[in-house]
Simulated scan of single mutants.
Amino acid sequence: MNLQQLRYVVATAEHRTMTDAARSLYIAQPALSRAIRDLERELGMTLFARSGRGVVVTAQGRRVVKLAREALDAVHEIEALATQTHSGGELRLASPPSLEPVLAGRLLPAYVAEHPGVRVHLVRCDGRDGVVNAVREQRADLGLTDLPVPADLVSHPLERQEIVLLSPPGLELPDTVPMIRLNAMRLVLPPPGSARRREFEQLFATYGVRPVIAAEIDERGSWPMAIRASSASMLGYRGMAEQAAKAGLVVRSLDPALRRIIALVHVRKRLAGMAQDFLSVAESGTSA
Rank of each mutant, 00 (worst) to 15 (best):
E159C: 13
G117R: 07
R136I: 02
P169Q: 07
C125V: 04
D126I: 00
M185I: 13
D146P: 09
P174A: 13
G130K: 04
V123C: 04
V177D: 06
P174M: 12
L147S: 13
A140M: 11
G130Q: 02
R119C: 13
I163R: 08
G170W: 07
E159F: 03
C125I: 07
P169Y: 12
H121C: 12
R186M: 07
V131E: 12
V188Y: 05
H156F: 13
R139P: 04
V120T: 11
V188H: 11
G143L: 09
I163M: 04
V118Q: 12
A134I: 08
Q161L: 14
Q161W: 09
V135Y: 00
D129H: 06
P174N: 08
I180L: 12
L142A: 04
V135R: 03
L122C: 01
R128V: 12
M179P: 06
V132R: 01
L144R: 11
V132P: 00
E172G: 05
R136H: 07
L122N: 01
R139V: 06
V154L: 11
R186P: 11
L158F: 01
E162Y: 03
G127P: 00
R186C: 12
M185W: 06
P169M: 14
L153A: 07
R160H: 11
D141R: 02
E159L: 15
L171F: 11
D175G: 12
E137P: 00
V135E: 05
